[in-house]
Design a protein around this nucleic acid. Structure first.
Length: 283
DNA sequence: ATGGGGGCCTGCCGGC
DNA sequence: TGCCGGCAGGCCCCCA
């Protein structure tokens, strides 16, 4: 459930039950995720207080009292399931363990956080908080979409001369961090840009316009609690409803939602990923 | 250096 | 009902 709005939604859901709380117990069921979990992870988590929950791109970072930071990535199918009421005297209101519960954190307040990830594309790591930005997974990331480093001038400069489809360019986490397939599709629809357009061929004005549109799409999605693509609460943990606002993603063969537009949403495959677009609105 | 394709995993859905 | 192919929100690696 992995693009920026979903990750931010997860972070916001975890914040009230994790921040300020001590990890009473950490249980690692499967250390062989996409990257192997760090050695001694359970021991290094146990007894630590979560000082802060942050997000960078699609990563969640939990700063611990030990001076280490727990880095979490949800991959494609990762979820953070929260169970158990805070301060509950008894802890038997937890669901039965599921097949892909790889890491289980039990906080001192009785809340349990379960990292479940069927495809194991997700990962976790433990790193020194002071140098977290230099972690290999974070070091190459481009600007945060809502950060000051992401602006029209810099985006235009970054895409100038690029001989790659604009779709691929916006998926490139070095250009801007946090967008995935859904939000790139929706961004390009709103911008009226065909996904196959070469990034370097787009007039600077149109590239500049992408900045505000990206922020708008992401803001709306965060406001809706992200997008839930399958069974609502089960698979996403988040209760997002932004999927109802999709104009193109997953709408192949359906009518364009632009009032008066006769177009039918089409799909094309670019570097192995589906791009959805309206052939009439997007040129 | 840059862009494209393959691979990593499992689950689900539609078609036969 | 059962099997099979295709598809999936991400990212890394390798090759041209």
């Amino acid at each position: 459930m992995p693009e920026l709005p979903e990750v931010e939604t997860v972070r916001r859901g975890l914040d009230p039950v994790m921040t300020g709380q001590v990890v009473a117990q950490a249980q690692v069921n499967r250390p062989d995720l996409r990257r192997p979990l760090p050695p001694g992870m359970a021991e290094r988590l146990t007894g630590q207080r979560v000082e802060r929950l942050r997000r960078r791109s699609k990563y969640i970072l939990a700063d611990l009292s030990s001076g280490e930071t727990l880095l979490i990535h949800l991959g494609m199918s990762g979820r953070m399931l929260v169970s158990g009421a805070p301060l509950a005297r008894f802890h038997h209101d937890h669901p039965a363990p599921q097949k892909h519960d790889h890491v289980v954190l039990t906080m001192a307040n009785g809340v349990r956080i379960t990292f479940n990830d069927a495809r194991r594309f997700g990962t976790m790591d433990l790193i020194a908080t002071v140098s977290a930005d230099r972690h290999p997974l974070l070091a190459g990331l481009g600007p945060e979409p809502f950060g000051n480093d992401f602006d029209e001038t810099r985006l235009v400069a970054r895409l100038k001369g690029r001989a790659t489809p604009i779709k691929s360019a916006l998926l490139d986490q070095r250009v801007v961090a946090g967008l995935g397939n859904i939000y790139v599709c929706e961004t390009l629809f709103r911008a009226g840009v065909h996904p196959a357009r070469q990034a370097g061929d787009l007039p600077a004005m149109r590239v500049a316009g992408l900045v505000a549109i990206i922020r708008q799409v992401l803001s709306e999605a965060i406001g809706a609690g992200g997008s839930s693509l399958r069974d609502y609460r089960q698979s996403d943990g988040a209760l997002g409803y932004f999927q109802h606002s999709f104009h193109v993603y997953g709408r192949e063969g359906l009518s364009c939602r632009t009032p008066g537009c006769p177009g039918t949403i089409a799909r094309l495959v670019q570097s192995g990923r589906s791009s959805f677009f309206c052939p009439v609105c997007q040129t």
